[in-house]
Design a protein around this nucleic acid. Structure first.
Length: 275
DNA sequence: AGCCAGGGTCTGC
DNA sequence: GCAGACCATGGC
C-alpha cells in the first residue's frame, strides 16, 4: 500500500482487498451515503470524510495525513492483512464462493457507543429503516458539523432525553432500550472502557445487562464496536447458513476471524436470489 | 394485504 | 430450561 498526500487529499495505491462500497453497505454500518459522483460521505469521531474509489486508487478527500493515520486507517481496518485472511478462506468451499463474489469487504472499527446503539435499533428491524432511525437520531440530537452532516450523539448528550422525546425517532419499542443503555453508561454502572479490556465472555455478559441487548446485539457490538474479530453474530441469515452448510460448526480456517467470515457469509446469503 | 426484518423480554409450563 | 405471544414500524 502506498500513501500519498496531495493538497487536501490522501491517495492510496496498491491497496489489497478493499472494496469501499461493499464495506460500507454490507450491513455493518448504517450512516454512509452514496453521492452522485460515485463517492461516499460519512462521519466518524466528528470528522466528515468523502471517499472515492476507482480502478487503481482510493481518494480520501478533504482530510489530512494526521486524520488518516489517527482515524481512517483504523476505521477501515487497514492494518489487517485481508488478502491473507481471504486466501485462507479458500480452504472452505462456501467461504471461497462468498469471498470470490464479494472480495474486498472489510469489517470496520466503529465507535463502541455508536455500534451498541445502532445494533439495539437493529433488532427485529430491516436495514433501510435502521438507517432512517439512526439518521433521525443524529439530526435531532447530534451536532451539525457542516452542511447536512451530523455527529452521532454521545450517550452523555442523551442523558436527559426521555423515552417520550425519543419518539421522534420512530424507533418503536426500541426507544426504551436506548434509554436504558444511556442510563447505565452515564451512571457508570457499565463502562465501555472496561468492556474493551475484558475477556470476550465477560464482555458479552456485561453488555447483556442492558435491556434490549441479547446475544446477537452483544456480539455485533463486540465485532463492530470493539474490534473483536472473533465475535460471531448469528442473525436469521447466519442461522440459515449454519443449518444449511455448517451443521457441525464453522470450518477451521475461520479461527480468530470468525466475525470477518460472518460478514462475507451474511452478505452472500442475504443476496442469494433463490432462497 | 400480509409477511418479514442483522431480536429480546416476559410469561407460563 | 424452553416455547410462544408480543412488541412498533415500514419495506417489499
Amino acid at each position: 500500500m502506498k500513501i500519498k498526500e496531495q493538497e487536501n487529499d490522501i491517495i492510496l495505491k496498491n491497496i489489497e482487498c478493499f472494496a469501499v462500497e461493499l464495506s460500507l453497505f454490507c450491513g455493518q454500518a448504517f450512516r454512509w451515503v452514496k453521492n452522485e459522483d460515485g463517492s461516499f460521505t460519512g462521519t466518524v469521531k466528528g470528522k466528515v470524510l468523502n471517499i472515492f474509489q476507482n480502478e487503481n486508487q482510493i481518494i480520501f478527500k478533504n482530510t489530512t495525513l494526521e486524520d488518516f493515520e489517527n482515524i481512517w486507517s483504523h476505521y477501515f481496518d487497514l492494518e489487517r492483512d485481508y488478502a491473507a485472511i481471504c486466501k485462507n478462506f479458500e480452504n472452505d468451499i462456501h467461504l471461497k464462493k462468498a469471498k470470490d463474489e464479494y472480495y474486498g469487504i472489510r469489517v470496520l472499527n466503529q465507535d463502541s457507543w455508536e455500534a451498541l446503539c445502532s445494533f439495539i435499533i437493529s433488532q427485529n428491524n430491516n436495514i433501510p429503516r435502521i438507517s432512517g432511525i439512526i439518521k433521525r437520531l443524529c439530526e435531532n440530537f447530534g451536532e451539525r458539523i457542516d452542511g447536512e452532516n451530523y455527529s452521532f450523539p454521545s450517550y452523555e448528550r442523551l442523558k436527559n432525553v426521555s423515552v417520550d422525546e425519543l419518539g421522534i425517532l420512530k424507533a418503536g419499542f426500541r426507544a426504551k432500550y436506548i434509554a436504558d443503555a444511556v442510563e447505565k453508561l452515564c451512571s457508570g454502572e457499565i463502562s465501555l472502557e472496561k468492556i474493551k479490556e475484558m475477556p470476550i465472555e465477560d464482555a458479552r455478559q456485561e453488555l447483556m445487562k442492558i435491556k434490549g441487548v441479547g446475544a446477537k446485539v452483544a456480539e455485533c457490538t463486540l465485532l463492530y464496536g470493539f474490534g473483536r474479530k472473533e465475535a460471531f453474530p448469528v442473525d436469521v441469515w447466519v442461522k440459515r447458513i449454519m443449518s444449511e452448510l455448517y451443521p457441525d460448526g464453522l470450518p477451521g480456517c475461520t479461527k480468530n476471524v470468525e466475525g470477518i467470515a460472518q460478514q462475507y457469509l451474511f452478505h452472500w446469503r442475504r443476496n442469494l436470489k433463490d432462497d
